[in-house]
């Protein structure tokens, strides 16, 4: 089972769009952390993480988003998660992290 995680970052003005594809687990989480934390430490940045192509995430992934959230609070940036698959969204709901991280599951352009 060598499923990987692809991370693509598109920065424009004060927004950084992070496109993820694959699985987020104990093996791939360090890669996500490496990409996400430097962004979260920048000041006044809106970080929009697109999880449309993430079909699996375990609690290690949640840990990365929690530390990114904490970092954005210190740097005055904002973290937003968009287009989550149901399985992934459920994780944020059970852990009640959806009450402290902005989550938008509507399909892009569908609003």
């Amino acid at each position: 089972m060598n499923i990987n995680l692809e991370v693509e970052i598109v920065e424009q003005d004060s927004t950084a769009i992070v496109l993820l594809a694959g699985e987020i687990d104990a093996y791939t989480a360090p890669k996500l952390k490496e990409a996400l934390l430097p962004l979260a430490k920048q000041q006044g940045l809106l970080i929009e993480v697109n999880l449309e192509k993430v079909n699996y995430m375990d609690s290690t992934g949640l840990g990365v988003f929690i530390s990114a959230l904490k970092a954005t609070k210190e740097s005055g940036s904002e973290l937003k998660l968009v287009q989550l698959q149901d399985r992934v969204k459920r994780l944020f709901e059970i852990t009640a992290l959806d009450s402290i991280i902005t989550i938008d599951s509507t399909v892009r352009g569908g609003k």
């Binding site: 952390k33 609690s59 949640l62 840990g63 990365v64 929690i66 530390s67 904490k70 970092a71 852990t95």
Partner: peptide
């Protein structure tokens, strides 16, 4: 604990 660690 470390910021990326949590417990349910």
């Amino acid at each position: 604990v470390d910021p990326s660690m949590f417990i349910t």
